[in-house]
Amino acid sequence: MNEILWVVFPYICLTVFVVGHFWRYRYDKFGWTTRSSQLYEDRLLRWGSPLFHFGILAVFLGHVMGLGIPKSWTEAVGISEGLYHFLAVSIGAIAGFGTVVGLAILIYRRRTVGPVFSATTRMDKVMYLFLATVIVLGLVNTVVANIFGHYDYRDGVSVWFRGIFRFDLHPELMAEAPLSFQLHGLAAIALFALWPFTRLVHVFSAPVGYLTRPYIVYRSRDDRIASHSPRRGWEDDR
């Protein structure tokens, strides 16, 4: 059972994540967008969207820190257990709280503003369900487990997580983790499998290149969009 939940399931989902993105980018560039609904409604979005997005960016960085960097490394540079714990809980709680509030505003907006609701796809709804579950469980982990419990995820979940990428698997570490951590992990893994088929793909087109490119882009007349016949789909013209 542990193997299925913490070895097979993650690998299947991560494979879907990678291959799915490749497939989507190859065949559905036109559908690769944020699908912004700002045109319909602005008042709620103005608060909800930045709260959620900046919050989730901070949460992401927190995860890089907590899951990606081994405990021994942070201790080597002189960050004590207590200091790390304090930073993780305080910053994590603030970011998580902002994210949850932002998400709540956005979901409330999506449900109550008519045009936004009618532009919501079934896939959006499934995605919102998983995303909200993952985020709420994550906040629960940070606040409840960190303050009242004594589970050190850096000796458990983090080691298992890094193991996935090194093919050094320790499913028993997850089995020992508290239930809320297990559920957070499972929901997140499932979300990764959904990811390429939702609007979440826009994460991977974060326009950081804008900071360095020239303002005006010149391009030569494009054969593929001009009045030429399109090339065959199976011919790799890139």
Binding site: K29, F30, W32, T33, T34, R35, S36, H202, S205, P207, I216, V217, Y218, R219, S220, R221, D222, I225
Partner: peptide, 18 residues
């Protein structure tokens, strides 16, 4: 982008991310 041949300004629908 601006087409270098005739200066027409176009949106690449495959690259626009909204």
């Amino acid at each position: 982008y601006k087409r270098s041949e005739d200066g027409i300004v176009l949106v690449d629908q495959d690259r626009c991310r909204g």
